[in-house]
């Protein structure tokens, strides 16, 4: 009872901020994915067919997955790390009689909202440009995986924001983890064609599982249940790690 109201209290404040900047936030988060779509889907990939689909059909779910990731990650992490490091307003949450789970979960929810807003915008694009996507009977499953992905990467955003010691650290985390992951996780190419060793490595990235699941659902292929479970495990790990870090870092 109090857990839910505490989570909502934390989320409520972030929602108020979002309300003030909704359009700008949405526009910013759509720039990259739309560029990818134009460059890879229409430019590079025109005329290529892939696993029996056009490259465009193939790449749209991948781009949706990476949008969900980047947008949830920064939606949850970017304000949080500034509030924690530079403004003392994160301390106020720590001095209030609410638990660490409420803080971590509450702070993640705004990332989920960011992630869902931008990936829904891309889903709309996908539905209009990709015939297979439109025809897939698995769209509800697609949506479920999308929501789960947004949670996973929001938890990761919170974790990163709680770990970093400077603004620069946050940039480095993005540059060394988020950006490479967005290109490598089977978003733009098929894992089938990669060497075995690399494939194993790529399965260590949460986005790989997210893009595999989303693509299977979008193209009506056999659904990789193991990947969905892996994705959920990543979410649990990131959430738990955030709680532990928050309990430890009250220096």
């Amino acid at each position: 009872m109090s857990l839910f109201s505490d989570i909502y209290a934390v989320f409520w404040a972030d929602l108020r901020v979002l309300r003030r900047r909704a359009l700008r936030t949405l526009a910013t988060s759509l720039v990259n994915p739309v560029l990818y779509l134009l460059a890879f889907g229409y430019g590079l990939g025109r005329g290529i067919s892939f696993e029996g689909y056009s490259y465009l059909d193939f790449v749209v779910p991948g781009i949706i997955a990476l949008t969900a990731m980047t947008s949830s990650f920064s939606g949850a992490g970017s304000k949080l790390h500034v509030d924690r490091l530079f403004y003392k307003c994160f301390d106020e949450l720590l001095m209030a009689p609410i638990g660490t789970l409420s803080i971590v979960f509450g702070k993640s929810l705004i990332g989920v909202v960011h992630g869902l807003i931008s990936s829904f915008a891309l889903v709309a694009v996908g539905l209009s440009v990709s015939p297979s996507f439109r025809a897939s009977p698995l769209l509800p499953l697609f949506m479920a995986v999308l929501i789960i992905s947004c949670f996973v990467f929001s938890f990761l955003g919170v974790l990163a924001a709680l770990l970093v010691r400077s603004h620069q650290d946050m940039g480095s985390f993005s540059a060394f983890v988020i950006v490479p992951m967005s290109f490598l996780s089977g978003t733009f190419f098929s894992l089938e064609s990669t060497p075995e060793a690399l494939k194993m490595a790529l399965y260590l990235l949460p986005l790989t599982h997210s893009s595999q699941c989303l693509r299977a659902a979008a193209l009506n292929q056999p659904f990789p249940l193991a990947s969905l479970i892996a994705l959920i495990c990543f979410g649990i790990i990131f959430l738990t790690a955030s709680i532990i870090v928050l309990r430890k870092t009250s220096v």
Binding site: V17, K88, C89, M95, P97
Partner: peptide, 17 residues
């Protein structure tokens, strides 16, 4: 935490609110 109120030395409000 239930018993205390704190006014920190530096601005600790959410500036966007």
């Amino acid at each position: 935490r239930k018993a205390i109120g704190v006014m920190q030395q530096h601005l600790s409000l959410d500036r966007d609110l």
